[in-house]
């Protein structure tokens, strides 16, 4: 039985002047699927991601989410459709406490009492309850990443987009994050963009490789990472 897609992208193109960052990409994500996007620097992953999240308007093509054509929609409208977005650089409220960061994310969907409960539950689940009263600006990079992930899942989105969630994290933090993402993936659809192949292997079953703004190959993680073309694209980087 095939699972209905939650996300369908047809001929997505994004140009910046004479540079085509994303070139006619077709992409489909099944409901409940976890897909990783990989590719060398400049492959177009982040531009593709930003077109999905509404931070960039595509030059052409269509992005269908749950039957809605969201191409060119502003980010807040896409988020309201049930999309949680984590950006490449941690994007949090530095001048506010950890608790309020997560509460604000939950409050968009839930009433005040439910948002507080959801916030407490997430702080415990992410093991950052001891940081609840700390200003986010005072935290280490890995802790800020966790706070942002907490904010992303606080409103219970159906589709989660994570751009380099493991960047700057220690080995232990990466392992914990991988476990958390695998747990989240049981209930939701996810697209994860990352460079860290160990991390990709920990979480992914299917991978899409981007190269020069196009989809080079996609399929099961082991087969894709063993592919000669993929190794070539990474220019000698060891794909373990």
């Amino acid at each position: 039985m095939t699972v209905a897609p939650i996300l369908e992208i047809r001929k997505l193109t994004k140009r910046f002047g004479g540079v085509t960052a994303v070139d006619g990409v077709d992409f489909t994500l099944a409901d409940g699927e976890l897909r990783c996007l990989i590719g060398p620097n400049g492959a177009g992953k982040s531009t593709f991601f930003n077109c999905l999240s509404g931070q960039l308007a595509p030059t052409s093509g269509a992005v269908h989410l749950d039957g809605h054509d969201i191409s060119g929609w502003p980010s807040h409208a896409i988020a309201r459709l049930g999309v949680g977005i984590k950006t490449q650089v941690p994007s949090v409220f530095d001048g506010l406490e950890v608790r309020e960061n997560v509460w604000l994310a939950a409050r968009r969907r839930y009433n005040a009492r439910e948002a507080k409960e959801r916030c407490d539950e997430l702080l415990t689940r992410l093991n950052i309850q001891s940081l609840a009263a700390h200003m986010v600006g005072e935290l280490a990079h890995g802790q800020r990443q966790l706070v942002e992930i907490g904010m992303v899942i606080a409103s219970d989105p159906r589709l989660i987009l994570l751009d380099e969630p493991a960047a700057g994290m220690s080995r232990d933090e990466v392992a914990r994050l991988a476990a958390l993402i695998s747990e989240i993936a049981r209930e939701r659809s996810l697209i994860v963009v990352d460079h860290d192949m160990r991390f990709i292997r920990m979480i992914a079953e299917t991978v899409t490789v981007f190269h020069q703004g196009r989809v080079l190959i996609e399929g099961e993680v082991d087969k894709v990472l063993a592919d000669a073309m993929v190794k070539d694209v990474y220019l000698g980087k060891q794909v373990v």
Binding site: P74, H76, R80, S91, F93, D94, G95, R108, R109
Partner: peptide, 13 residues
Amino acid sequence: RENPLRAELLGYD
């Protein structure tokens, strides 16, 4: 005031 992009990504206009 703290981070307009994050507020937008959370679904606030």
